[in-house]
Measured scan of single mutants.
Amino acid sequence: MAAGGDHGSPDSYRSPLASRYASPEMCFVFSDRYKFRTWRQLWLWLAEAEQTLGLPITDEQIQEMKSNLENIDFKMAAEEEKRLRHDVMAHVHTFGHCCPKAAGIIHLGATSCYVGDNTDLIILRNALDLLLPKLARVISRLADFAKERASLPTLGFTHFQPAQLTTVGKRCCLWIQDLCMDLQNLKRVRDDLRFRGVKGTTGTQASFLQLFEGDDHKVEQLDKMVTEKAGFKRAFIITGQTYTRKVDIEVLSVLASLGASVHKICTDIRLLANLKEMEEPFEKQQIGSSAMPYKRNPMRSERCCSLARHLMTLVMDPLQTASVQWFERTLDDSANRRICLAEAFLTADTILNTLQNISEGLVVYPKVIERRIRQELPFMATENIIMAMVKAGGSRQDCHEKIRVLSQQAASVVKQEGGDNDLIERIQVDAYFSPIHSQLDHLLDPSSFTGRASQQVQRFLEEEVYPLLKPYESVMKVKAELCL
């Protein structure tokens, strides 16, 4: 049975990233139509530049190519590739079939990587351009969430054990800070992308030097003109047959890092959902379990974690691919890159769409948070109580021993009897502590235990987050809708 299948058929496997999760716009960027249309555009740009620099290419040939950029006979191309065992030459023939007058000058002087690699770089750039505003929107939604809850005390956790208090907004800023680093890295790697350009079979530009009869300047002009037509500021000066596969490492490393950030955020949300302090959106008709109707599973956060793990592992592909590119190139890269580049971007696209949807509907339960604080705060307040007693004339050592005994009794009630923490009640009825009984409410005010959390939130948002989001103001209103 021949390899390949009808990918629109229910009898043929289709990647869930495309069929179930990723956005239509990201799927289109990695589609065959987008790819092969870009090949034709690159052939047109090459012909236009070659004509401008004096090669015998007519206006009629150029116009014929322009008129057929979208006229792609995919069936013919597939048949040609089956016959020739070469995808680029299959599309040269297919393009030439609908451009008979231009057929002889299509791909003039070029090698397969002229269309293959340059198209990949265009796709990487455009895919990054799709991700950047999506990530900015996630940051914006979380920034709104953090600002609104900047002063809401909550129990902090280290080692997932109760620690000092923080605020809900401050905790959210930990998430935002990681995503801001990801946004900066995505922008950097996007701006650092260079075009492969017009380089020939081993990167020496020998074929173009021959076409222009040894004119170095025209060869350099050709490279520059096509690079500018493709919208790049610069091209690699040095290439082998391909652009260095280190570029793929750079791009997928940034995406993998984004995956790590999203995994951490969504894990926190899942843990908070278990504590009943916070939940992701839950639709009115949504079913959490087929057997347990009360369940409210954090399905979206779980999906993000599941896909983020996949995204983090994909960076190993370009690392290994770059390491086995012998001399000017081997074909070890080809099949692998067809999979890992598309999957990385479709996965990143999915987790950003999902995280935006989550961040637009996060639900906080202040009463649950308050109750958990009441359970733990008495123990945390013991040092403040000791200091207040010393100020009232008591002995630190005597007070410490009193607190120690009462704390152990209260802990026994919590752990052995399943009761509430009654340390404060014990202190309130103990005559030894009568000098500070009137101060206990103040000493137990949760806001006095959150330090500068709310001020940190305000400063972080104003100095770091809002300036970073400013270039994306025009796209901030787009909502994230999930079908599944």
Rank of each mutant, 00 (worst) to 15 (best):
G8N: 11
P10K: 12
L17N: 12
Y21E: 03
P24I: 15
E25C: 06
E25T: 15
M26R: 05
K35F: 02
K35D: 04
T38Q: 10
T38H: 02
W39E: 09
R40D: 01
Q41L: 06
A47N: 03
E48W: 01
A49R: 02
Q51D: 01
T52K: 07
L53H: 01
T58A: 04
D59Y: 12
N68L: 02
E70A: 06
E70K: 04
N71L: 10
A77I: 13
A78R: 07
E79S: 07
E81C: 01
M89N: 06
A90M: 01
H91D: 01
H91R: 06
V92L: 08
H93Y: 15
F95L: 10
G96M: 11
C98Y: 15
P100V: 15
A102W: 00
A103Q: 05
G104I: 12
L108S: 11
L121M: 06
R125N: 04
L128P: 00
L130Y: 10
L131C: 06
P133R: 14
K134A: 08
L135Y: 10
R141Q: 15
L142S: 11
A143V: 04
R149G: 09
F157G: 04
F160G: 08
F160I: 09
F160R: 03
A163W: 01
T166R: 02
T167N: 03
C172Y: 15
C172N: 09
L174F: 15
L179T: 14
C180R: 05
M181T: 14
D182Q: 02
D192P: 11
L193A: 09
L193T: 09
R196V: 12
G197K: 02
V198G: 13
V198N: 14
T201H: 07
T202A: 11
G203E: 00
G203H: 05
G203T: 01
T204Y: 01
Q205A: 14
S207Y: 11
F208R: 02
L211K: 07
F212R: 03
F212L: 12
G214S: 11
H217Y: 14
Q221H: 14
R234P: 00
T239S: 10
G240P: 01
G240L: 00
G240D: 01
Q241N: 01
T244F: 05
T244H: 15
K246E: 04
V254Q: 00
A256H: 05
S257E: 10
G259C: 15
A260Y: 06
C266E: 06
C266Y: 04
R270Y: 03
R270W: 04
L271R: 00
L272E: 13
A273K: 00
E277W: 03
F282C: 13
Q285N: 12
G288R: 03
S289G: 01
S289H: 00
S289L: 02
A291L: 04
M299N: 10
M299R: 01
M299G: 03
R300F: 02
S301M: 14
S301A: 03
C304A: 12
L307T: 14
A308P: 02
A308V: 04
H310W: 09
H310C: 09
M312R: 01
M312V: 09
M312A: 11
P318T: 05
Q320T: 09
V324N: 08
Q325N: 13
Q325D: 03
Q325P: 01
F327V: 12
F327H: 11
L331A: 03
D332T: 00
S334P: 01
S334T: 07
I339P: 00
C340T: 12
L341S: 14
L341P: 10
A344I: 01
A344P: 10
T347E: 09
I351Q: 02
S359A: 08
E360S: 02
L362C: 03
Y365S: 13
P366Q: 08
V368A: 04
I369L: 11
I369V: 13
I373E: 00
Q375P: 10
F379P: 08
T382D: 04
N384Y: 06
I386R: 03
M387E: 01
V390H: 10
R396A: 07
C399H: 15
H400T: 02
H400K: 01
K402S: 10
R404F: 10
R404P: 06
R404E: 03
V405W: 09
L406T: 07
Q416C: 13
E417V: 08
G418H: 01
G419V: 07
D420N: 10
R426T: 05
A431E: 14
D445P: 04
P446T: 12
S448Y: 12
G451V: 03
A453G: 11
Q456H: 09
V457Y: 03
F460W: 08
L461C: 15
V465Y: 04
L468Y: 11
P471C: 14
V475W: 10
M476G: 15
K477S: 14
L482C: 14
C483A: 13
L484V: 12
